[in-house]
């Protein structure tokens, strides 16, 4: 899975795509160089990958997003460089598009540049979020976003969390939920995300240990 050339994160608004994208890129960077994150989020005004541009540059991970004043503008623009990077095989790439249908529409505009055999498309699920709190609703959103993005979803990601209050039991509850989504959709589960070293045992899926990058001013 991680040997793929392009990793695309799809999901509902606030499911955790950006945090996973940043961590995924950092993880891939340990194996390969160069690595780039495509920040194609045209929806969120705060807490975006591009906020970490300088931090990731230190580790030689490039974050591709609108530059200069456009970096912090809420304009729906995608830099031209995104297609160039996707078409070149030099980079390992993580694509962080925005949530909901807006994100899927952006993905659809670049889906022609994503080589299906060389890519992995993930659908991120946090069952503690509104609108993905039942299996049926989640499958419905998944199918719709996949159609809109013109990309087939290869894997599900369990990102069950309640922020800083996440307990082991929440993560395991999430596994059962995502397992049910997997059964209903026929899409396998890639991993379970765990933030900041929460202890987890008895898990069904491989753990992906993450570090929190997107912090509030009082967490700095």
């Amino acid at each position: 899975m991680l040997e793929k050339h392009v990793h695309v994160l799809m999901g509902m608004f606030g499911s955790g795509k950006t945090e996973i994208s940043l961590n995924l890129a950092a993880c891939i960077r340990q194996e390969r160089n160069p690595v780039a994150i495509v920040d194609a989020d045209i929806v969120s005004p705060y807490f975006r990958s591009r906020d970490l541009t300088e931090v990731f540059a230190e580790d030689n991970v490039e974050i591709i997003a609108p530059k200069g004043a456009f970096r912090i503008a809420d304009l729906p623009t995608i830099p031209a460089r995104v297609r160039g990077v996707l078409q070149s095989y030099d980079y390992s790439i993580v694509v962080d598009a925005g949530g909901n249908d807006y994100g899927a529409v952006v993905l659809s505009s670049i889906s022609g540049d994503i080589n299906v055999r060389q890519s992995a498309v993930y659908f991120v699920i946090n069952p503690f979020r509104p609108f993905t709190d039942t299996v049926n609703k989640t499958v419905e959103h998944l199918s719709r976003l996949s159609r809109r993005a013109r990309l087939r979803v290869d894997y599900l990601i369990n990102n069950a969390n309640l922020g800083n209050e996440t307990a082991e039991s929440d993560i395991l509850t999430g596994e059962r939920f995502v397992e049910a989504v997997s059964e209903a959709s026929g899409i396998p589960v890639a991993m379970t995300c765990v933030m900041n070293g929460t202890e987890v045992s008895g898990n069904s899926f491989p753990l992906f240990r993450m570090k929190k990058y997107l912090k509030t001013p009082w967490e700095v």
Partner: peptide, 16 residues
Amino acid sequence: MTEKTMVKGNEAMAEA
């Protein structure tokens, strides 16, 4: 699911 939900402030105020 549990009674807690993970929400953005804007969504939370709307639901409230």
